[in-house]
Design a protein around this nucleic acid. Structure first.
Length: 586
DNA sequence: GCCGTTTTCGGCCCGACTGTTTTCAGTCG
């Protein structure tokens, strides 16, 4: 059973337990467990088989036993018992904004409502307002949420789109007279690959006008909440944005609090409690009672707890507190440290610019090398290169490269060769051996057998001419699921063969995902951050790849393209090592 | 249900907003 499936079942168990009125901490424990399983870098099934589940934080004997039961029988008695009492539709109802466990349960027990469809009908018939404690506004709000299709499925926003919107809103806030500071917070500041909503924070001695201006912004379609300290709006593109405003003396406390993650903050507060302090967005207060002492900077918040300042990308309660306590946080890689890009396309395949134009774009962004890695023929629709065209393109790139060498720039020959089912590559070995750089990747393998796919990827890693395996899981964040791939096994093969793994910086991919970046680094695998650009401006996405790598705890040393092209040679597998200097074309 | 330089039992993170209440519950983040 996959980690995500196990996690989903524990989330379901949590929701049903919540409906059933279980002790809240039990519900929290199930949710925490689900989160641990979802983000685990290795197979939960394997960990269970080896009896190592309780090594994970937040997993105790009881939950470990439930996982064992689940893997042995396909389900859990506790889950089936609850399912017999509460229809699955109640869980979907709880996803509707404004409906929590208490309301869902009453809707079911008092009105017989057992699905979002039935809930909609009950709202339309005016039955919901008849329940004590609910009223017309509540009923209208639920109906509106259901009609907006806003029900269970949460709107997913990609990193690039969210950053663009948020950066412009922050600029607007900063331009307001009463605004002392404004910043992006939440999962966007942590640079998660997908964003549910955007959190902004601001400091001002007079919050009301700032909140009012925010609510009146032309991009706002709907104001869903407007109080003395915060406002929530929905933009015309459906993006929800929350703004919280606080006095400047509390800025550090506020920014820290609203950057999250929730799990990170809970862990911080537990740490605060062990010092007799209560931590909130207002600062530190004695548990015994008394006023909160605010922090003006985030460094003060962490410093009070005996911790190094923790970069937002690491704030997921995945060991960063322990590292910060021991002064052992990694120095994360930065965009400025990238010296080259090793995955880009030209108009020889499905790109939209010549190799020369792509090189000029790389130079304009301060890079000193670029590999042109067009598709091989297997990608279909005639866009890929066969052996003859690959050789011809190589000559073309070499010709374009010559005048650039005097500027200190390496324009390099390469290919993105397809890994075929069975593990063979889509071009002859002697052609691959001629190229400066070989990216291997699989396309269109969704639905293929996990073992067969994994075996073919491992075979590619073992190929003497393959430098890097690109976007290995094939995931697309706008909806398409990743391939069913044993990433751990691929990481092991890359470590064994000296093959690099790619973080594809395209905001729709960001593949490897951060958990796997971290696991790969731990296994000794080096990483490439690559744009996969198909036009000159496409190189700009490198920033998102850096964000993703940072979430995977990557330092500059872990990333091969923080080296110059000559220095990078020392890291390549022996069969790709061209000697002391760069391989120079004849 | 988890966990232990306060505890193997008794704690467990904190506050804002809305709607429905005339003092608060439910929901959300």
């Amino acid at each position: 059973m996959r980690n995500a499936e196990i996690a989903d079942l524990f989330d379901l168990l949590a929701s049903l337990s919540e409906l059933d009125g279980a002790v809240v901490y039990k519900v929290i424990a199930y949710r925490k467990a689900a989160e641990r399983f979802r983000s685990a870098p290795e197979s939960i099934e394997r960990m269970a088989a080896e009896g190592r589940l309780t090594e994970l934080a937040d997993i105790g004997g009881t939950i470990a036993a439930k996982v064992d039961e689940l893997l042995a029988s396909g389900t859990m008695a506790a889950l089936e018992k609850l399912r017999a009492v509460y229809p699955d539709g109640l869980v979907a109802m709880m996803q509707v904004p404004g409906v929590g466990p208490k309301t869902a349960k009453r809707l079911y027990s008092e009105l017989g409502v057992d699905s979002t469809e039935a809930l909609k009908a009950a709202c339309e018939a005016g039955h919901v307002r008849e329940l004590k404690g609910l009223g017309e506004k509540k009923e209208a709000g639920i109906l509106e949420a259901l009609q907006a299709g806003g029900g269970p499925r949460k709107h997913v926003i990609l990193l690039d789109h969210a950053l663009e919107r948020a950066e412009s809103l922050v600029a607007m806030l900063r331009a307001e007279p009463g605004c002392v500071a404004a910043e992006i917070a939440g999962s966007l500041r942590r640079r998660k690959e997908t964003i549910g909503d955007v959190d902004l924070v601001a400091a001002s001695d007079d919050p009301a006008p700032l909140l009012q201006r925010f609510a009146e912004h032309p991009g706002v379609q709907d104001v869903t909440a407007l109080g003395d300290a915060k406002a929530s709006v929905v933009l015309h593109d459906g993006m929800q944005v929350d703004l919280r405003v606080i006095e400047p003396a509390q800025w550090g406390s506020l920014l820290q609090h609203f950057t999250g993650s929730k799990a990170h903050n809970v862990a911080l507060r537990e740490r605060a409690r062990s010092q007799g302090l209560s931590l909130s967005e207002h600062g530190f207060a004695p548990i015994a009672g008394g006023d909160a002492v605010p922090c003006a900077t985030e460094e003060e918040v962490y410093g009070q707890l005996g911790l190094q300042w923790i970069p937002p990308e690491l704030r997921e309660n995945q060991g960063e507190l322990e590292a910060a306590a021991n002064d052992a946080l990694p120095v994360l890689v930065t965009l400025a440290e990238l010296q080259g890009d090793v995955h880009a396309h030209s108009d020889a395949s499905d790109g939209h610019a010549t190799p020369r134009e792509m090189a000029e774009a790389a130079i304009a962004r301060g890079l000193s090398y670029l590999t042109i890695t067009d598709h091989s023929k297997a990608v279909g629709m005639g866009i890929g290169l066969d052996a003859d065209k690959t050789v011809a393109n190589m000559k073309l790139v070499q010709k374009a490269a010559k005048p650039l060498r005097s500027k200190g720039f390496y324009l390099l020959t390469g290919i993105e060769v397809d890994i075929m089912p069975g593990g063979l590559l889509d071009l002859p070995d002697e052609v691959l051996a001629e190229l400066d750089w070989v990216v291997a990747s699989a396309h269109g393998r969704r639905g293929q057998d996990r073992d067969a796919l994994t075996a073919s990827m491992i075979a590619a890693a073992e190929h003497p001419s393959v430098d890097v395996i690109a976007h290995p899981t094939g995931r697309l964040l706008d909806g398409r699921e990743p391939y069913d791939l044993d990433v751990e096994a691929l990481i092991e093969a890359c470590a064994r063969t000296g093959t690099f793994l790619e973080v594809n910086a395209n905001p729709k991919r960001l593949d490897l995902r951060p958990e796997h970046v971290r696991a790969a680094i731990a296994a000794g695998v080096k990483i490439c951050i690559s744009s996969d650009a198909h036009h000159p401006d496409g190189i700009d996405v490198l920033r998102y790849g850096v964000d993703c790598a940072r979430r995977g705890w990557a330092t500059a040393d872990d990333i091969v393209n923080t080296r110059s092209w000559p220095d990078l040679q020392a890291l390549r597998k022996p069969t790709r090592h061209f000697g002391p200097g760069p391989k120079m074309s004849p």
